[in-house]
Structures are given as C-alpha cells and as structure tokens.
C-alpha cells in the first residue's frame, strides 16, 4: 500500500540552523501518527513541509505516491488545524467552516448545509451564526477542526491543537479526536510536545530532537523500550543512569533507564541491598508522590504510589527496582 506521507532524506535549513535534518519517515494511510519533541526540535517544521507552507532544502516529500516538491499548499489535498486556530475574525462560524467549499465554488445553500453537518460532527450544532470571538477556546478548536475537515482531506495535520486548552478539556478533546479519526478513517498527523498526549492518542510516535527523529515506534515501545537516553528522559521522564552506575549493576552498557514508578524506596535500617541515596525533596501529586533523590551527586526521581511511606527530606534510604525494570541502551 502506498504510504500517505513519505519523507526521503528531508532537510530544512535556515542559514546555519538545521531545523529538520535528513529525516526519513513513512506514515501509513489511516494512521494516527504523533510527532513528539521539545520546542525547536523540528516537528512543527515537518508538519509545515507536509502542508506546503515551507519547502525542504533537500530531500523529497511524497504524498500518496506523488512528489510534493514545488506544489503550493492550495493544491495539496491536505488540511491543517492550526495551533492558534487561525479562524477568520470577519466571518461567522458557518462561513469559516464553509470557507474551503466557497473557494471551491460550491453554491451557498449547499455549502452552508455541509458546513452545518461538519459543525454537528464536532458537536457544535447551531453555532454557525456566532463570530469566532464569541466562542470559548474549546469551541474555537472544534470550529477549526470542522473547517479543516470540510474539504474531506486524506491527511489532516494538527499542530499542537490542544495546547491552549485547560487540562480537563484537553483530556476530553483527546478522546474525541481519537474517536473522530476512527470514524473518518483518514490519516491524522499530530504535533505535540506533551508526551502523555502522544502516547494516549497515537498509533505510532516519532520522537524528535534537534531536527532528527531519534526514535519511531508504537507508544509502548517508545515508553518502555527507549533506544537512546533522550527518549527515556523526554518520554515520561525516566531516570537515565550514567555509565558508572550502570556498570556496577549490569556490566558494560552505555546507559540504562528506570521508570520513576518502578523505583522502590527501603528504609536505611532494613537490609542493605540496593543503592544508597539521600532524599532531596518530596512533592504530593494527587495520585502519587514524587520523591527527588540524590545518588552520589546524581539525581533520580521515584514515584511512590498511594499508601507507601513517604520519607522526609534529608533521610537516608536504599533505592531498589526489579531487574526487568532496568532498561539497557547502547551508546547513542
């Protein structure tokens, strides 16, 4: 099957800055694909390259088997949900949603009918008469979604669409987006810096760092089996252990990581197995308590479940985890 989007050695340099650096990538049709990375890692630039707002300095982007080089955005069957929604302030919601149809020359009555249908799809029926400025952030987000879907794109690009929403709404929208993608069956490419969002929604995740994809795979793989320390640290803030600690535990490996929730703390008085550490501080997170530890000048985090004894700051403890929770990595 032809992939929906393919990158072949794609680079985008701005002067000496390598925003995207020789990225190879293949996204299947109907896939929910997440591009995850810190700001400035090149994920948004990749999305803009697919949309056609920017052209690669080197390499080739192929969309459904066709080379997209030199094709302007308005000739691509790809639509975008913008981070700031980019709704047109001088049009009401219905005209915003119907914009793509208006441009395509669809008669007024029909495009308004279809726009009303798109608004129903995003659970905003009857909002057509309002101006974008009269909507809440979540509602604007839905309008932007309906507007991007009206042209029935084969690939929908979403640039941090949930970034401006509060936590509760964000979780709700995550589920709705996932449902919508299943219902429509089109390819979603989703850019985010929120690892939780990427892991919970995507079929596959590409982790970006400094213009390159450092790991690409299923959410479980990226979470449990990071290939490089950056992924271990960025995706769910694992403890990356330095080589000298790893050598003591498992022999010659470059790095190893342990998830904070796998770390157990044992009172210094009870038994002496495990590593020796000092509690630096504790923070109550609601579902768990985060304990920052000092391990011979190297810091580590443990996530203690409800009911566990919470040590005091400055207390001496032993740190332990089961061997299968120690994930070993080659040098990167």
């Amino acid at each position: 099957m032809t992939p929906a989007v393919r990158f072949k050695g794609v680079s985008r340099h701005y002067g000496s800055v390598r925003a995207v650096d020789e990225v190879d990538l293949s996204i299947a049709e109907g896939e929910f694909f997440a591009m995850l990375g810190p700001s400035g890692s090149g994920k948004t630039t990749c999305l803009r390259l697919i949309a056609g707002f920017d052209q690669p300095t080197a390499g080739e982007i192929v969309i459904f088997g066709e080379n997209a080089g030199g094709v302007p955005p308005y000739k691509r069957h790809v639509n975008t949900v913008f981070q700031d929604y980019a709704l047109f302030p001088h049009m009401n919601v219905l005209d915003n949603v119907a914009y793509g149809l208006m441009i395509a020359g669809v008669p007024k009555a029909e495009r308004h009918k279809r726009a009303e249908g798109a608004l129903e799809l995003v659970a905003l029926p009857g909002f057509g008469g309002r101006k974008p400025s009269e909507l809440s952030g979540g509602q604007r987000q839905r309008v932007a979604l309906a507007r991007a879907l009206i042209n029935e794109p084969r690939v929908l690009l979403l640039d941090e669409p949930l970034g401006a929403l509060d936590l509760k709404l964000r979780e709700q929208m995550q589920e709705e987006l996932k449902d919508l993608q299943r219902k429509l069956g089109i390819t979603f490419i989703f850019v985010t810096h929120d690892q939780g969002e990427a892991l919970s929604m995507a079929d596959r995740v590409a982790v970006f760092n400094e213009g390159k994809i450092v790991q690409i795979g299923k959410p479980e793989d990226v979470y449990y089996r990071p290939e490089v320390p950056f992924v271990a640290d960025f995706v769910g803030s694992s403890n990356v252990l330095p080589p000298h600690v790893v050598e003591k535990l498992a022999g010659k490996w470059a790095h190893a990581s342990v998830r904070p929730e796998a770390v157990e703390l044992i009172d210094a008085g009870l038994g002496a197995d495990g590593l020796h550490a000092t509690v630096h501080s504790t923070a109550f997170l609601g579902t768990a308590t985060r304990v920052s530890l000092d391990l011979d000048g190297f810091s580590m985090v443990a996530l203690l479940p409800k009911g566990a004894r919470i040590p005091e700051s400055g207390e001496q403890v032993h740190v332990k985890w089961s061997p299968e929770d120690l994930h070993l990595m080659d040098a990167a």
């Binding site: 955005p73 914009y99 441009i103």
Partner: peptide, 14 residues
C-alpha cells in the same frame, strides 16, 4: 497573523 493567510491557502485558496 501569518497563520490566517496560511489557513486560507491550506483550504484551497490561491
């Protein structure tokens, strides 16, 4: 904002 012009192009407008 630049994104508004991009959005228009994205939706098919020359």
């Amino acid at each position: 904002p630049a994104s508004m012009l991009e959005a228009s192009g994205d939706l098919g407008a020359s």
